[in-house]
Simulated assay, not measured.
Amino acid sequence: MKFNNAEDTIQLSPLWEGERFPDGRPKVPSSVLDRLSRITLEEAWGPLWSRGYHYQFEGEFKIIHPGKIMVGRAVTAVMVPKRPDLHDTLMNYGHEQEGRRGFFNQWVIDSLGEEDVVVIDMFDKIYQGTYVGGNLSTAISTRTKSGGAVIWGGIRDNQQIEKIDNINVYYRGSDPTAIADVTMVGMNVPARIGRAVCLPGDVVLGTPAGVIFIPAHLAELTATHAEKSQVRDVFGFARLNANVYTTAQIDAAWTMAMWQDFMDWFESDNAAAPYQHLTWERELEEARRNEDNGPSSDVRL
Rank of each mutant, 00 (worst) to 15 (best):
residue 82 K to L: 11
residue 35 R to Q: 02
residue 54 H to K: 12
residue 21 F to T: 15
residue 289 R to P: 07
residue 222 T to V: 06
residue 167 I to C: 06
residue 283 E to K: 08
residue 149 A to E: 01
residue 57 F to W: 05
residue 201 G to H: 02
residue 214 I to G: 04
residue 43 E to Y: 00
residue 271 A to R: 15
residue 3 F to I: 03
residue 113 G to Q: 10
residue 214 I to K: 05
residue 36 L to E: 00
residue 31 S to V: 13
residue 27 K to V: 04
residue 10 I to E: 13
residue 83 R to G: 00
residue 13 S to N: 15
residue 244 V to M: 14
residue 235 F to S: 02
residue 189 V to L: 03
residue 14 P to S: 07
residue 214 I to L: 07
residue 198 C to Y: 04
residue 131 Y to T: 09
residue 278 L to F: 12
residue 6 A to L: 05
residue 237 F to S: 09
residue 57 F to H: 02
residue 281 E to T: 15
residue 60 E to Y: 15
residue 242 A to L: 12
residue 41 L to M: 15
residue 48 L to D: 01
residue 117 V to I: 09
residue 237 F to V: 12
residue 237 F to N: 11
residue 235 F to G: 01
residue 88 D to M: 14
residue 120 I to N: 01
residue 28 V to H: 03
residue 175 D to A: 03
residue 204 V to D: 02
residue 299 V to G: 08
residue 3 F to H: 03
residue 47 P to S: 00
residue 294 G to C: 12
residue 165 D to V: 12
residue 261 D to M: 10
residue 245 Y to T: 10
residue 234 V to F: 08
residue 215 P to R: 06
residue 216 A to I: 05
residue 109 I to C: 06
residue 99 G to P: 01
residue 147 G to I: 02
residue 106 Q to V: 14
residue 64 I to C: 08
residue 31 S to W: 10
residue 81 P to D: 02
residue 119 V to Y: 00
residue 179 I to F: 15
residue 161 I to W: 08
residue 103 F to V: 15
residue 183 T to F: 12
residue 79 M to V: 11
residue 192 R to N: 08
residue 237 F to A: 05
residue 276 Q to T: 13
residue 18 G to L: 04
residue 41 L to C: 14
residue 116 D to T: 07
residue 206 G to F: 00
residue 96 E to I: 14
residue 69 I to N: 05
residue 206 G to H: 04
residue 161 I to K: 04
residue 26 P to K: 05
residue 122 M to K: 01
residue 283 E to D: 10
residue 168 N to K: 02
residue 94 G to K: 06
residue 36 L to H: 00
residue 277 H to Y: 09
residue 23 D to K: 00
residue 270 N to P: 07
residue 203 V to C: 11
residue 57 F to E: 00
residue 135 N to C: 12
residue 222 T to Y: 02
residue 300 R to H: 08
residue 256 M to K: 10
residue 218 L to H: 06
residue 107 W to Y: 10
residue 66 P to L: 12
residue 104 F to L: 03
residue 162 E to M: 14
residue 186 G to H: 02
residue 4 N to K: 08
residue 96 E to A: 12
residue 196 A to C: 05
residue 72 G to C: 02
residue 52 G to F: 05
residue 99 G to Y: 06
residue 127 Y to K: 11
residue 14 P to W: 06
residue 241 N to T: 10
residue 173 G to E: 03
residue 100 R to P: 05
residue 19 E to C: 08
residue 11 Q to S: 10
residue 130 T to N: 02
residue 78 V to I: 09
residue 161 I to H: 03
residue 7 E to K: 13
residue 186 G to E: 01
residue 77 A to D: 09
residue 156 R to W: 13
residue 60 E to Q: 14
residue 140 I to L: 11
residue 78 V to W: 00
residue 85 D to E: 12
residue 111 S to A: 07
residue 8 D to I: 12
residue 31 S to M: 10
residue 34 D to C: 00
residue 52 G to A: 04
residue 223 A to E: 02
residue 167 I to R: 02
residue 119 V to Q: 03
residue 259 W to K: 07
residue 179 I to N: 04
residue 181 D to V: 06
residue 221 L to F: 09
residue 217 H to N: 13
residue 90 L to D: 06
residue 259 W to S: 05
residue 170 Y to H: 02
residue 127 Y to W: 03
residue 92 N to L: 14
residue 4 N to R: 09
